[in-house]
């Protein structure tokens, strides 16, 4: 058992790293879903979007 670990140490390390990254990603997705943020490619809804002029109001600029 220990021998196998030694030989494949690199694989194990990488494998764990991958698992960690995947878990982190999954957790982030679930957290966003709960906050209702959705996987909107525009983070905070309409936060500081310069296109906010076109998004709401009648041509609200600036």
């Amino acid at each position: 058992m220990l021998e196998w670990l030694c030989v494949n140490a690199a694989s194990v390390a990488v494998g764990l790293a991958v698992l960690a990254v995947v878990a982190l990603a999954a957790w982030k997705v679930l957290k966003d879903k709960k906050h209702g943020k959705g996987s909107c490619s525009c983070g905070s809804g309409c936060g500081g979007c310069a296109c906010s002029g076109i998004c709401h109001g009648h041509a609200e600029g600036k």
């Binding site: 990603a25 996987s39 490619s41 936060g47 296109c51």
Partner: peptide, 30 residues
Amino acid sequence: PAAGNVLRATWERGWSFIKRAFTVILLSTV
């Protein structure tokens, strides 16, 4: 054009996309 508005909005959008790449897309690829 007010550089502040333009740059800030573009940065936010870019960051969101990158976030999406490293979360949702990463998961689906795996």
